[in-house]
């Protein structure tokens, strides 16, 4: 490949100088052989090594403690999708149960799309990213879900869901302004609603110390069981909703958001009706 520059007549050509490949005219950089463990994370910071290390503990929770049953995994599309689920429990175990079910049954990664606040937390923020946590940002969703074809998981209720009182169990909270619909639309991927039963009782909130929460700058400080109770978990994956409609106005966004919330709420009631025991399912 020629590295000779050629000057064009400025009055006639668009180019001042013609170079076939800019990288070829700069002195080459040192070539290095990287050790195999140079970086054990993907570009989003997820570490397969960390996931593998926590695997035995999660296996125990999934198989023995919560005895998780999952149905409808075949409804998850082969490409990118945004999983949308209900969220509950003072320290909610639902995300890990969903992620683990999909990892074990479909051998696919799930990236949990959380609030930016996770990144501020020492240790927990680090752990969140290493097991597949990313911020719920439109540009991140476009790349991760739209271009890479990965699965994202969001909980639109946020801390309103996890911080709700025991008396409000099985009642889904507001889905905010439906920002997750915009995220899916921007990424061009379907929304897959997921209903989870069990998180409500795994670590119930019997009271909240709002004054202390305010002092500590936390969303809530719960009066709770402090440990996960061994309740039966049931996960049902529902039919995907195609939101690649071309309509991105706020009204459409809100309508789709309400539809998704309603279908998860109905399914949660349905799962509840089928359940005979909180512990045994």
């Amino acid at each position: 490949m020629s590295t000779e520059g050629r000057r064009h007549d400025r009055d006639r050509g668009d180019h001042l100088w013609v170079v076939e490949e800019a990288a070829d005219v700069v002195r080459p950089e040192p070539r290095v052989t990287l050790p195999e463990d140079a970086a054990d994370t993907d570009r989003w910071g997820r570490s397969e090594e960390v996931v593998r290390r926590v695997g035995p503990a999660v296996d125990f929770l999934y198989d023995r403690w919560f005895r998780t049953e999952v149905e409808g995994l075949d409804k998850i599309p082969a490409g990118g999708a945004l999983l949308v689920s209900n969220h509950a429990g003072a320290l909610p175990p639902d995300a890990v149960q969903i992620m683990w079910a999909i990892r074990r049954e479909l051998d696919r990664r799930v990236y949990m799309m959380g609030e930016h606040v996770f990144g501020r937390l020492p240790v927990a923020g680090w752990m969140f990213r290493r097991i597949g946590g990313v911020e719920a940002d439109p540009s991140t969703a476009r790349k991760l879900l739209g271009e890479e074809g990965q699965l994202g998981l969001v909980f639109p209720e946020g801390t309103k869901g996890t911080g709700k009182h025991w008396s409000e169990r099985y009642r889904l909270q507001r889905f905010g302004r439906g920002g997750f619909v915009r995220v899916a639309m921007d990424a061009g991927v379907p929304i897959v609603p997921v209903a989870v039963l069990g998180a409500e009782e795994a670590m119930p909130i019997f009271g909240r110390l709002d004054g202390l929460a305010g002092m500590l700058g936390l969303p809530y400080v719960p009066v709770t069981s402090m440990v996960w109770l061994p309740v039966k978990f049931r996960i049902r994956v529902l039919d995907p909703i195609d939101v690649h409609l071309g309509h991105s106005d706020d009204h459409t966004q809100q309508m789709v958001s309400e539809d998704v919330r309603a279908v998860i709420q109905r399914t949660l009631i349905d799962l509840l009706a089928q359940r005979r025991s909180v512990i045994w399912g």
């Binding site: 520059g5 668009d14 180019h15 001042l16 100088w17 013609v18 170079v19 800019a22 990288a23 005219v25 700069v26 002195r27 080459p28 950089e29 994370t41 989003w44 910071g45 020492p122 240790v123 923020g125 680090w126 990213r129």
Partner: peptide
């Protein structure tokens, strides 16, 4: 408690980008 994601480029790569920007519109 923090281990953030970071990036690096070599001076060679930046120089190549400058040459590209000078020679292409």
């Amino acid at each position: 408690g923090y281990d953030p994601q970071v990036q690096f480029v070599t001076a060679h790569a930046v120089a190549a980008a400058i040459v590209h920007a000078l020679t292409e519109d």
